[in-house]
């Protein structure tokens, strides 16, 4: 299991290859990569703030929950902070399990929890100003399916 919180970019393909090689014998590997999206047009960059110390602990706790619920042989979470241009990878989750159902479910669970339980805050900076991204009710509702 690996959790990385970093300012530097990462190569999702290279990460997935390395994870898959390390997960030999797992039978199923699922990965998700989140990318900075220019929703309204005119986005200069995304600024991601986080809570050093709590971030790593919160993600580790979420990964531990996933390991308790599904038969995972390995898991990887990478989440960036700092200034990210449109098109840049923000975060990545990979799970390995004997069977695909567990790998998919665990990746989905990790994404839902990372979105609203890991201390990151996104700010969108455009030519016209900057605004904090508001949490969506749907993000909180998404957690209900795992209860």
């Amino acid at each position: 299991m690996a959790v990385r919180v970093q300012a530097e970019t990462f190569d999702a393909g290279a990460e997935l290859n390395a994870f898959s090689i390390g997960a030999q014998g797992a039978g199923a590997v699922v990965s998700f990569t989140g990318i900075v999206r220019d929703v309204a047009g005119g986005l200069r960059h995304m600024m991601i703030e986080h809570y050093p110390g709590m971030t790593e602990a919160a993600i580790a706790a979420i990964v531990k929950q996933a390991q308790t619920r599904w038969a995972l042989t390995d898991a990887l979470v990478i989440h960036r902070h700092g200034i990210l241009p449109p098109g840049a990878p923000i975060m990545m989750v990979a799970t390995a399990a004997p069977h695909r159902a567990d790998a998919f479910a665990a990746a989905d669970f990790l994404m839902d929890y990372l979105k609203s339980r890991a201390p990151f805050w996104k700010k969108e900076v455009s030519a016209t100003g900057a605004a904090w991204v508001a949490a969506q009710d749907a993000d909180e509702a998404a957690l209900d399916r795992w209860r």
């Binding site: 709590m54 990151f120 805050w121 904090w132 949490a135 993000d139 909180e140």
Partner: peptide, 10 residues
């Protein structure tokens, strides 16, 4: 103690 808005990671 830390105060912050709802988190928007992922």
């Amino acid at each position: 103690v830390a105060f912050f808005p709802p988190m928007t990671g992922g």
